[in-house]
Each structure stands twice: as C-alpha cells, then as structure tokens.
C-alpha cells in the first residue's frame, strides 16, 4: 500500500479511537476472542462432560450460568460456542466479500452486457427469501458447520457487489484512472492497483456489519436444529434446549441469547464507527 493510503488509514484509525461506542464494540469483540481462545484455561469444566448429579442447576458460585439438562456447565459451553460464532462470522463474510467484490469490480469496470448480466443475477438472488434458500440448500446437503458457513457466504454477497459496483462506476472516470489508462496500464493493473484500494472503504463497513448478520443467521439455523449439530456447543443450539426447559430453567434461555445480542451489538457499533471514521461527512 502506498504512503498516501497508509496515511489515510492512520487518520481513520485515530478518528475511530476517539469514538467511544466503536471502542466499546471493539472491546467486546476482543473479550470474545480471548474467551474463545483461552476457554480451556478459564474454566475447570469441559464443554461436553455429562454430570448426572448436577442436572439443571440454577446459577451458583460454581456454575456461574447454571448447568443444562445433561449437567454441563452453561458458561463453559458458551465460551466454546463463541468459537463457533467467530468462525462462522469471519468465514461466511470472507466468502461473501470475496464474491461480492469480484462481481462488483467486473460489472462496474467493464459495464455493458457483462454488467447487466451480473446485476440481473443480483436481482434474482435478492428475490429469494435468504432464509428459505439457506434451508433448501441444507436440506439437500448435510447440516455441518462448513456447509453453513459456505451457504451463508454464498447467499450474502449481493449487497457488497452493489456497493463495490457503484464505487467503481465513479472511480473509473476519475483522472488518476484515466491517467493510468493513458500510460498503457493493463485492465488488471488498473482494477487491482488503482480501483480496488479506493473501493475498499465501504466493503470494510459492510463486512463488519455482515459478521453480525452471519452470527444471527447461524444462531437461528442452529436453534432450528439445522445448523451446528450437538454435542458441539453453539449459542443457537444451546437455546434449543432452553426452549424445551423454558418452564424449569430460565438460565438456559437467558444467557446464550444475551451473548448473541451483545456480540451483534458490538459488531454493529464497530461497523458504524468505522463508517463514520472513514467518512466524517456522513456523520449524521
């Protein structure tokens, strides 16, 4: 990256640091990373050890968030569940951003028939209720975390494609791009060297917000029993047993749901913070 762009990002970072809400979001995300990596050192319990004598115990000093119907420690399982959420968030969004950026770049840069073809493709994908499409694909395959991540990514690239395309449409007419073309730079060089770095800002925002969306989708799928399969702990499938024991054990439903809520709020705050830092003019 050139001197100029890195200078730009250092300004952005400074603006971001002065945003209290964004920093709170970043802090929560950081804590989640710590929890998911250090889980085995933080808790004395294993996520899937059954304990028939400690079934459905309410929160106490030993079991901060209580135990579930098989005597497993809820807090421990939530820390391992954080791993799943982080993994799903990043892999799914990575897929969506890669596809969306590639399609947006090609459609915006070359225009014409390719552009209309690709944008009709976006329109078509947007017709499907995303949740229906995801469920249908899973019905054809097996519910596994890898498929889930891939499917969430493959059904979530359309917004990024539109964003990038719009950005490219304005960039390709700018003087520096015209200059590069006049100097005889190849299309590949213009796209990767001149347009892409300048079109990345909105992608960064969309990606951060996208992680939040992917975490929500995964938890809903797991809750319905078609996402991450037990005994692997995910916040969504923990809530499934929460529903079964709603009348006897409120803690099974409360804590994993709060974890999802807090995580999604954190990513949203961070994403909005990045947006404001990238372009202060948009600041309401």
């Amino acid at each position: 990256m050139s001197f100029k762009t890195s200078y730009f990002y250092s300004i952005v970072l400074r603006r971001l640091r002065s945003n209290r809400f964004a920093m709170a979001g970043a802090l929560v995300v950081g804590i989640l990373f710590l929890f998911s990596f250090l889980a085995p050192y933080i808790t004395p319990y294993a996520p899937d050890t059954l304990d028939a004598y400690r079934v459905l115990m309410p929160p106490s000093a030993e079991h901060w968030f209580g135990t579930d119907e098989l005597g497993r420690d809820v807090f421990t399982r939530m820390m391992y569940g954080a791993r799943i959420s982080l993994k799903v968030g990043f892999v799914a969004v990575g897929i969506a951003v890669t596809i969306g950026t590639a399609i947006g770049l090609l459609a915006g840069y070359y225009g014409g028939f390719l552009d209309s073809l690709m944008m009709r493709g976006v329109d078509i994908m947007l017709c499907f209720p995303t949740f229906f499409l995801i469920l249908a694909v899973i019905a054809m395959l097996e519910p596994s975390i890898w498929y889930i991540m891939a499917i969430i990514g493959l059904t979530g690239w359309m917004g990024v494609a539109r964003l990038v395309r719009a950005e490219v449409l304005s960039l390709r007419e700018r003087d520096f791009v015209q200059a590069a073309r006049a100097l005889g730079a190849s299309d590949l060089r213009i796209i990767c060297g001149h347009i892409l770095p300048n079109a990345l800002s909105p992608v960064l925002v969309a990606a951060t917000l996208g992680v939040a969306g992917a975490i929500l989708t995964e938890s809903a799928l797991s809750f319905l029993g078609i996402g991450v399969q037990p005994p692997t702990a995910s916040w969504g499938n923990m809530l499934t047993s929460g529903k079964d024991y709603l009348e006897f054990a409120w803690w099974l439903s409360l804590f994993p749901g709060l974890a999802i809520l807090v995580t999604v709020v954190a990513y949203n705050l961070l994403g909005e913070g990045i947006r404001d830092a990238l372009d202060p003019r948009l600041n309401r």
Binding site: L239, S253, G257, L261
Partner: peptide, 22 residues
C-alpha cells in the same frame, strides 16, 4: 433501534413465551 437490529427474534420469542405464557 440498535437493540432491535441485534436481538435474535427467536430468542425474543422465547423470552416473551416465558414471561407472558409461563
């Protein structure tokens, strides 16, 4: 609005079921 964006609807459903139903 921020909370509304972030709350998983199925979880909210569970909470409401617990409160108003149970």
């Amino acid at each position: 609005v921020f909370l509304g964006f972030a709350v998983p609807t199925f979880w909210l459903a569970l909470i409401l079921m617990y409160l108003f139903g149970v």
